[in-house]
Each structure stands twice: as structure tokens, then as C-alpha cells.
Amino acid sequence: MAGALPHPDEDVLTAFAEGALLERERESVMEHLAGCSECREILSLTAAAAPEATVLHVVPTGPTQKRWLPWLAAAAAVVLVSSAALIYVRGREINGLPQQSPEIAVQGIGRREPDSARPDAPAVQSAEPMPGLATSEAATGNSETVGRTHWRINEAGHAERSLGNGTWQAVLPNDSARIRVISVSGSDVWLGGEKLHLCHSNDDGATWHCEQLPTKNSSASVLAHIRFRDLQTGVVEATDGTRWETGDGGRTWR
């Protein structure tokens, strides 16, 4: 029973949460957590208390959107900026409450699943806002509207940035692999995409370092999720669930 093992101390729980435990240690802690509601509660509170890194999933512009008139694009941009501003203001007003992701805010589907639906819900991806999600300007804490960096993935799968002047510029060469996910935290920007390509900029997209993640024993080829707890500790995940972790800001991945 859970009482057979003593509770892991704060050091071990922190290292578990940050992915810094040895594999054997992780198994041991997971075994304890599976049976100890108190430690699960502590882990949950700790995770919720962290000022999370930004994970921004941008929906690529689809073919049908090409037909739309240019003014619709401008209107969408206004909505995006308004939503971002709203998120920013809400984030400041409601201290400690999760902020809403820009993708969800724009699409207007950010509703939490009802508790009564829980037993059947796992098959459906939750549309609940992810804590700490925000646009790059919110992440940098800059309330200025002009001059903020915006990010998107265009229909060709290229990452583009805009400095708030309505002009979008690709940040990587055109022959780069298609990008599938952008993660922004302050001036740190991560791009992930096909062929396990991962690019990082620590100066808001001015300069980039790109690499191909080491292959693992899986057919993973497309990076789908990037999440950083802090500037050093992060996880990248492929579409099939294969994961790479770093504890040194992306210098090495395991």
C-alpha cells in the first residue's frame, strides 16, 4: 500500500516534475504517486504554481481561406490583437488563474468539459485553456501594441513573424522542413516540424540555431508539441508520443 513507501521529499518531487530524475528513480516515484493522493495533490499544486512557458499552436492558413477577401484577414488580425490584449489584461487582473490560449480565444471554443461527461471524455481532446498560454507579447510582459512580435505558420508550413506592422516575414530559409508548432516564451522561440527539425532563437527570432533531433526506436518524424517549464527544462513531443527532454536549454536532448 502507499504507506509502505515514505513520501518522496521536496527535492525528489521537484526533480520528478522537472524530468531530472534517473529512470529508476522516476519509476519509484511514479509507483508512490499512483497510490498516494497527498503527493499527487502536492505535485498538482506545484505544477499549477509554475509560471509556465508559452506553447502556441498556430493553425496554418487553409486553402479555403485563400478565397477570403483581404479585409477579412485584416479583421481577423484585429480580433487576434483584441483577444491577445484581453488575455493580457485578464492575466493581470486575475492573479493566478489560467490564461486562455490565443488559438482557443480566436476560435472561441475554450470551454471546459462538464464533470458529468468525464467518464467518457478521454477520447476527446479537451479544449480547456492551457495554463500559462499566451501570445508572445503576453509572455514578454510587454503591454505595448506596436512593436510586439507575432508568430504564425503560413500555408506552406513556414514560420513567419510580424513586428506588429502588418508585414509577415519568413524566419527560416524556404527549403527548411515544414513547421508544425511554435512555442514562445519571452524572447525564446522554438519551432518544431517535420523530419524532427527543431529550431531555437533566443533573440525573438533574429538569429536561429536549427538541428534534427536524434531518432529513437519509433517511426516519429513530425514534432507536434513543445513545452518548456523554464529556459532550461523542456520537452518536445512527436505526433506518435515519442518524447525528447532537455535540461540544459536545448544543448542536448535525450
Binding site: 524530468g19 499527487r40 498538482s44 477520447a123 476527446v124 481532446q125 479537451s126 480547456e128 495554463p131 508520443g241
Partner: peptide
């Protein structure tokens, strides 16, 4: 799903 994902450093869709 999001809370569990945060604890395991996984995306909520993976948890789902």
C-alpha cells in the same frame, strides 16, 4: 487532462 499533462510534462492530447 491539462492538469495531468502539466504534472507529467505531456500535452493534454497525449494524456487523452
Amino acid at each position: 487532462l491539462a492538469e495531468i499533462g502539466l504534472q507529467l510534462s505531456l500535452h493534454e492530447s497525449t494524456i487523452s
